[in-house]
Amino acid sequence: MNEDELGKSECWYIIACEKDSEVVIGHQARTKDELIRRIDEGEWDRLLNKIKVEPGDFFYIPSGTIHAVGEGIILLEIQQPSDTTYRIHDYDRVDQDGKRRELQIEKAKDVATVLPTDLDLHVKVKKDKRLTVTRYLSSIYFTVEKWEADGEAAIPLEEFTLVSVIGGQGKVNGAEARKGDHFILTSLCSEARLSGNLEIIACWIDRINCR
């Protein structure tokens, strides 16, 4: 990788979107040479893999995957800690001064992968009377779950956990929480105690997977 980094894997949870909104994940090229040729010739419609989205969709984007978020989408993004972005195309947009954003085409060509886009995440769902836990992903980079509580429930914690409330309102460990709130449950918390009607995206780094 460039910039002395090992890449930036990320994932998206679609919170809201307009009808027929799309994201780009991956491409149609079968070889690196074909990928480079289509980039050089600007064959974006033939190259990019476009996917229509709906609220509640979840996508994992491994490092090196060409990706973009289309218009009319509100999403929650979870990623490795990295500020590096290589742009190969910016839809010919200009800023208020009529300038286009800088592209990093050669660097993007170098790191872009040529692999089939596998969107099957083998999602696991556990339900009881007051709580539904959906595990979308467990990797060396992060584990991501959705917690849906209707009443009182408790979830054991093993690591510090990032919490984003994407729906409803209630309490988390005694603190008021509502849609739009983001906070951290530190490693001193042995569990997340939920009450009310809450929809939460929670993520953490699983140290077992990191070994």
Rank of each mutant, 00 (worst) to 15 (best):
Q79S: 11
D150S: 13
R38C: 04
G196D: 12
D57E: 12
K127V: 09
C11Y: 10
E176I: 12
R38K: 00
G56M: 10
E5R: 10
R207K: 01
E191G: 05
I201T: 05
K124V: 09
F59A: 08
W12P: 02
D40R: 15
R93G: 11
D97T: 07
S9C: 06
R211V: 00
D110E: 08
L185Q: 09
A177G: 10
V123D: 00
Q28M: 15
D181V: 07
D150F: 06
D128I: 04
F142W: 01
P55T: 03
A108P: 04
E102V: 07
G196F: 14
R135E: 07
K129E: 08
K109T: 04
N49M: 08
T31C: 04
V94Q: 01
A149Q: 09
L48N: 02
S63W: 01
R101L: 02
T161Y: 09
N173G: 06
I51E: 01
V125S: 02
G72F: 12
I200T: 07
I155T: 01
D57Q: 10
G174C: 09
I140Q: 01
L198Q: 04
L48T: 02
T85F: 15
N173Y: 10
F183D: 05
H67W: 03
I25K: 15
Y13E: 15
N209L: 00
K107R: 12
S139K: 02
G64K: 04
V133I: 07
Q28A: 11
D20H: 07
S139T: 10
E152V: 14
Y86S: 13
K126R: 11
V133M: 12
V94C: 02
L198A: 05
L76E: 12
Y91D: 05
S82R: 14
K52A: 11
E41N: 14
E34D: 02
D120E: 11
P55Q: 15
G26I: 15
E158R: 00
Y141D: 01
V144W: 15
L103N: 10
T134N: 15
I78P: 09
T113F: 01
E54T: 06
N2R: 15
V123E: 01
Y136T: 07
R178D: 12
Y60L: 02
K50G: 08
I78D: 05
E3I: 09
W147R: 08
E102C: 02
S21G: 14
